[in-house]
Amino acid sequence: MLRQIGSRLMQALLLVLAVVVLNFALVHAAPGDPVETIAGVSGGMSEELKTELRAAYGLDQPLPTQLGVYLLKVAQLDLGYSYFFNLPVTQLIVERIPATLLLVVTSVLGAFFIGTTLGVLASRRPNGWLSQLINLISLVGFAAPVFWTGMMLVLLLASALPLFPISNMRSIDSSGGGGLADIMDVAHHLVLPSLTLGLVYLAQYSRLARASMLEVLGADFIRTARAKGLAERVVLYKHALRNAVLPVVTILGLQFGNVMAGAILVETVFNWPGLGRLAYESVLRRDYPTILGVLLFASIVVLVMNQITDLCYRQIDPRIKSR
C-alpha cells in the first residue's frame, strides 16, 4: 500500500512538473508584452521605466533562466506577484476559489444526478415517447455551445421573464454576512450560470447512462434477478444502475478539466467572480504569474479528481482492485 501511494505521488509530481513547464512555455510563446500592456493601461510610459519594470519582473532574463527561477519559487509554494493586481497570486487564487468551486460543484453534481436519472428513465422504454424526448433534449444540450446557451438563458429567464439576475454573485445591497438571506441571494444568482454550465454535461451523462443501462439490462445477471421474482424497481436501481453508472463516473472524473475550461466562458458571460474570470482578465492583461498560477491550480484539481474517481470506482464496484 505504501509503495502504491509513493508511486502515485511520484507520478503526480512528475506530471505537475511537466504541466508547469509546458504552461510556462506556451504562455511566454503567446504574442504580447506585459510591460507594454501596463504602459497602455497607464496611458504611456518612458522607455527607462519600461526597462526598470522588465528588470523588476525578471523579463529581461533569458527564458531558461526565467523558467528556472519560476520552478524554484513553485517548489517553495510561491506563485509570485500579479503584474496587474499587485497582489500575491496565491492570495488572488484563494479569494476566487470559493466562487468557482460553488459554480463547478453545483453544475457537475446537478448534471450527474439529473442526467443519470434521465438516462435510467429513458432506458426503461427505449422506444417510448419519454425516451425520445430525453434524447432530443440531450442532443440539443450537447450540440449547443456554452456561451450560446448562456445568452439564450439570459434572454429567456432574465429578459423575457425577469426571474433571475444576470451578473455578479451577490446583489449590490447584500451584506455578505453569510446568513440565510445572503445564502438565498447567492443561490438566486447561481441559477443561470450553474444551469448554463451544467446543461452540456447533463446531456452527455443522460445519453451515456441510457446506453450503459440498455447494455446492462440485457446481461445474464439481470435476467436471473428478474427470474427470482425481484421487483422491477429493485432490479433497475439496485442491480443494474450500480453497474451502469461506472462509465458515467469515469466521464465525470475525466471531464473535470473541461468543466474548469467551460467555467471561464460562463464566469465571463455572467461576471461571476471566480478563477475563470480571473484567468480571462489575466490573459487580456498579459499577467503571466496569475495565468500560470490559475493553470497550475486547475491542473492539480484535475489530478485530485482523477484520484477521487479511482476511489469512487472501488466503492461502487468492489471487484475493481487498485493497481
Rank of each mutant, 00 (worst) to 15 (best):
S138D: 11
L87C: 03
L118Y: 10
V94C: 00
I308D: 08
K50R: 12
L14Y: 11
H188K: 10
R242W: 08
P126M: 04
Q132P: 00
S7N: 14
S282E: 07
E95V: 07
L109N: 01
A18T: 12
I222S: 01
F147N: 06
F142I: 14
G40Y: 04
L275S: 01
A203C: 05
L136D: 03
D310C: 06
A99Y: 02
G141R: 07
T196S: 01
L22F: 14
L303K: 01
N243I: 06
E52P: 02
L77N: 02
R233A: 04
D182A: 08
G40N: 09
V19K: 06
V200Q: 11
T90C: 02
A211Y: 15
L199A: 07
L118Q: 05
L133R: 09
M1N: 13
I320K: 07
F297W: 12
V41I: 13
F84W: 08
P165N: 01
S131Q: 06
I183W: 15
R323K: 12
G58V: 06
L246S: 01
L71Y: 00
F221Y: 10
F270L: 09
F256L: 04
M10R: 13
I300W: 15
G150H: 02
L208N: 01
F112T: 06
T37A: 03
L121Q: 06
A211Q: 12
L161H: 07
I172S: 12
E267H: 05
R285T: 13
S7R: 04
D310V: 11
P64L: 10
M1C: 15
P165H: 03
L17V: 14
E52D: 08
L296R: 04
A99Q: 05
G43L: 02
L190K: 04
R323I: 11
F113N: 07
F84Y: 07
I316C: 03
T106N: 04
R323T: 14
D60V: 05
A227Y: 04
A99S: 08
E281A: 10
L296N: 07
Q255E: 14
L217E: 10
G110S: 14
M1R: 11
W272D: 12
A25M: 08
S174I: 05
I251L: 15
P318Y: 01
V302Y: 10
Y70P: 08
Q66F: 13
V69G: 06
I5L: 14
V235D: 01
G68F: 03
F84S: 15
V35A: 02
L72I: 09
W129R: 06
R277L: 15
I264K: 00
G150Y: 03
A211K: 11
M213Q: 05
V74C: 02
I308S: 09
I251F: 04
R319F: 08
R3I: 15
T117V: 12
R233M: 07
R54K: 12
V104D: 09
